[in-house]
């Protein structure tokens, strides 16, 4: 499930800065992880790039740190914690779930809920209980349906 989620997160294309191949980790699995991590972190210099895309010197340093830590066997959470301990929550491109971000993460559900509620309300308002047919009407229906 976690792997599926990670795949899901990286589904929309990958983007990278021109960088030195010497930076990359020899182990493809580790390099893949490092890259995914870098894409979750914001470059503080070119603030609209992730660390993985940015050509800033700062991003290069962080790419090196990420790879050192991944190589040393740290898991994703440990690397992210190392980053937030120095650069704050601003460095995370996907904010952690907390009291401050609960509205953000709940927004898809709230939007769907509001849409659903609006439809239900609109339908309830429009649906008067059907009035039973009078005898005359019933007779007319019988005639029309030709039975």
């Amino acid at each position: 499930m976690i792997r599926l989620l990670v795949l899901w997160l990286t589904l929309t294309a990958s983007a990278f800065a021109v960088s030195n191949p010497a930076e990359l980790l020899p182990d493809p699995a580790q390099e893949y992880r490092a890259r995914a991590l870098g894409q979750r972190l914001r470059c503080l210099v070119c603030q609209n790039n992730s660390v993985e895309e940015s050509e800033a010197d700062f991003a290069r340093d962080l790419r090196r740190v990420i790879r050192e830590r991944v190589k040393a066997g740290e898991d994703d959470a440990q690397v992210i914690t190392w980053m937030t301990a120095r650069y704050g929550d601003f460095v995370r491109l996907s904010p952690a779930f907390s009291a401050q971000t609960v509205l953000l993460w709940a927004s898809p559900f709230l939007a769907l809920l509001a849409g659903g509620a609006a439809v239900v309300l609109a339908r309830r308002r429009q649906m008067p209980p059907p009035v039973p047919l009078t005898d005359v009407e019933r007779e007319a229906v019988r005639k029309l349906s030709g039975s």
Binding site: Q39, R42, S94, L104
Partner: peptide
């Protein structure tokens, strides 16, 4: 608070 909302959030919620 200073926080960022970027590609990983949008990919995870919009898709």
């Amino acid at each position: 608070a200073k926080l960022s909302v970027g590609a990983p959030f949008f990919n995870a919620t919009v898709l």
